[in-house]
């Protein structure tokens, strides 16, 4: 392994070449027009991780006694610090990017009703309309659930991490609801500057209240997603949770009632069908 004995400047050149080679697979998809930074970094992270592991194994188990002490240190520096740093940057970017996609949100089963609704052409919810009309081109969940600026991103990641934590520990309350006050700025960033928005009297009247999030845009234009009753299966009523009390008054009876209605209508149907059968059998 002669290259480990190269001059320092040559080593640097070698590392640069190595990095560039790493990037090659990213360009190997002829059908795709270019590649995003996130995808590039993902490829780099994967390759660099493999190289780092290989370098460490080879150096530690095969070359430790064959090479000079200085070269050994350099090799460890490369395997234990340089390459992991590159891998970490790549993987973090990948993770940050991946968690902005609708697929990522859909990967938790609890989100299924929301994502199904989003993709439902016939759904009238705000989310579905923004999706099907391509008002938001991609990463639709993330787009509306992240405020602008570094704080918005940090908050979204914080909430996302918390949600993930609750999901994997099975500690979420059902039905899930949006807590707190939805930041209207997420809506007004796109809509606020349009004439259509500005000339609406209700918007003029509620200007301060909308700016302070004291009234949510979804108060009038919602619901953004299917309501708990629309999400739920009437045959398996969702159980209320104590945690819900600070968000909404829960009435279990309501769901039971919808179940009752469902059963009642079913019985009606059968009776009616039976009735018709009876009459039809009697009449010629």
């Amino acid at each position: 392994m002669k290259f480990l004995k190269f001059e320092q400047s040559k080593r640097t050149v070698f590392l640069l070449i190595l990095l560039l080679i790493n990037a090659v697979p990213a360009f190997c998809y002829p059908e795709e027009q270019g590649v995003s930074a996130a995808e590039l970094l993902r490829e780099i992270a994967i390759v660099v991780t493999i190289i780092a592991i290989a370098v460490l194994i080879v150096v530690e188990f095969f070359l430790k006694n064959k090479i000079a002490r200085g070269s050994y240190k350099w090799a460890l520096f490369l395997g234990l610090f340089m390459l992991p740093v590159i891998a970490m940057v790549g993987s973090t970017t990948t993770l940050m990017h991946e968690t902005t996609t609708v697929e990522s949100c859909a990967s938790c089963h609890i989100m299924e009703p929301f994502v199904n609704d989003l993709r439902n052409e016939e759904s009238p919810t705000l989310a579905a309309r923004h999706f099907k009309n391509k008002w938001i081109a991609e990463n639709q969940c993330y787009h509306c659930h992240t405020s602008y600026g570094i704080h918005g991103t940090a908050e979204a990641k914080r909430d996302g991490f918390r949600h993930w934590l609750m999901y994997v520990t099975d500690t979420w309350p059902e039905p899930i609801t949006f807590k707190g006050s939805y930041p209207n700025q997420n809506c007004t960033t796109c809509h606020g500057s349009t004439k259509k928005f500005q000339t609406v009297n209700s918007h003029i009247a509620l200007r301060e209240k909308l700016m302070n999030n004291e009234v949510s845009c979804s108060s009038c234009h919602g619901p953004a997603h299917p309501t708990p009753l629309e999400r739920g299966n009437p045959i398996q009523p969702v159980e209320p949770s104590d945690n819900q009390e600070d968000e909404l008054v829960w009435h279990q009876h309501d769901v039971e009632n919808s179940y009752e209605v469902y059963n009642y209508v079913k019985t009606l149907g059968t009776e009616k069908i039976l009735g018709i059968e009876q009459t039809s059998s009697v009449s010629p």
Binding site: S202, S218, S219, C220, P223, P228, L229, E230, L248, D254
Partner: peptide, 10 residues
């Protein structure tokens, strides 16, 4: 959200 207005108010 549980009423006929699906959580909407004017």
């Amino acid at each position: 959200k549980y009423a006929h207005n699906r959580g909407r108010l004017c």
